[in-house]
């Protein structure tokens, strides 16, 4: 099956390892990604704090172009995913806005119907491969790994999560890989987004709360589904250690990297060497050795 791939700016920038692993895993699962040509930035959660109607036009241009290609959109960044879904939702609900956007799209020779579906790769894997299907393809089960799934905020919020999907359903992908599912209570709590760069004291605190909880839950790795969460959680671990005097070092893989490891794909294809906190096969034993005495 083929999908229209909307990478978003992150996937071409600091999250190239996420993109590498996404391509590798989709390939291994027999799914095809075709990048949307000439896509533009969706505006993220930032553009709309300066201009409102224009922000919806940015999403609409991408949706209109993807509609022409026919297949469903896959957006691996939860901000892009949420923004595209929000655009679709608002254009359907606010006729005034729709009229303005239609006019602007017509000026550049585009037309938006409003029929295209936007999906996160998690949803694709769950729907088109399924837990059983994934389990059947696992070659190197992640035995002994305590994996805490962290979804972040935007995938679980109003415009997001397509019908019939729940975070609990996504959780089931973890045991399918042979790993132990850690009950991570803060799985949908915000990581602070760009606050780690703008209001550092607050941003670091939000990240620290998540990492600390993961440590308490005795997770070996915290798996993310959003490239910005991925960067936020791993890039500031050193500063957080210095600021709060608590060592919360933990690998933060993107979910397709973890799936790819279980599928037996090479480390290079998954971009594992690009992680700031290394993720290795012997992770579980090492982590056990380091933490068991402290826990006792």
């Amino acid at each position: 099956m083929a999908y229209t791939y909307f990478p978003g700016c992150c996937m071409h920038g600091f999250a190239r390892h996420c993109q590498d692993s996404l391509y590798a895993v989709f390939d291994a699962l027999g799914l095809e990604l075709r990048e949307l040509p000439e896509w533009n930035c969706c505006g993220a959660t930032t553009y709309i704090s300066v201009e409102e109607n224009q922000a919806f036009a940015l999403g609409a241009r991408n949706l209109a172009m993807a509609e022409k290609l026919g297949s469903e959109i896959v957006a691996p960044c939860t901000a892009c995913y949420m923004i595209l879904k929000k655009t679709k939702d608002h254009l359907a609900r606010y006729p005034d806005l729709r009229e303005k956007i239609d006019q602007a799209l017509a000026a550049i020779g585009l037309h938006y119907e409003g029929k295209i579906e936007i999906l996160h790769p998690l949803e694709i894997i769950l729907r088109d491969v399924g837990v059983k299907g994934l389990k059947a393809k696992v070659k190197k089960p992640l035995r002994g790994w305590n994996v805490a799934p962290y979804y972040g905020c935007l995938i679980a919020r109003p415009y997001a999560l397509s019908e019939g999907f729940t975070l609990e359903a996504f959780d089931q992908l973890v045991p399918a890989l042979g790993a132990n599912l850690v009950d991570f209570e803060l799985k949908a709590r915000c990581c602070g987004g760009s606050l780690t760069g703008t209001i550092e004291e607050v941003g670091h605190r939000l990240v620290y709360i998540l990492l600390h909880q993961a440590k308490l839950a005795r997770a070996h790795c915290l798996v993310t589904v959003c490239p910005l969460c991925q960067l936020n959680l791993e890039a500031h671990q050193g500063k957080i250690k210095r600021r709060y005097g608590d060592d919360v070092t933990i690998p933060i893989p993107y979910f397709t990297q973890l799936i790819g490891m279980a599928l037996g794909l090479s480390e290079k294809a998954l971009g594992l060497e690009k992680l700031l906190v290394p993720l290795r096969w012997e992770l579980a034993e090492k982590a056990f050795a380091a933490r068991e005495p402290a826990a006792a």
Binding site: E51, N53, Q54, A57, R61, K100, Q103, A104, I108
Partner: peptide, 14 residues
């Protein structure tokens, strides 16, 4: 160019 034109049209209509 397309993108900029689209944004200009919106700005005018707003």
């Amino acid at each position: 160019e397309d993108l900029r034109r689209m944004l200009e049209v919106i700005e005018a209509s707003t």
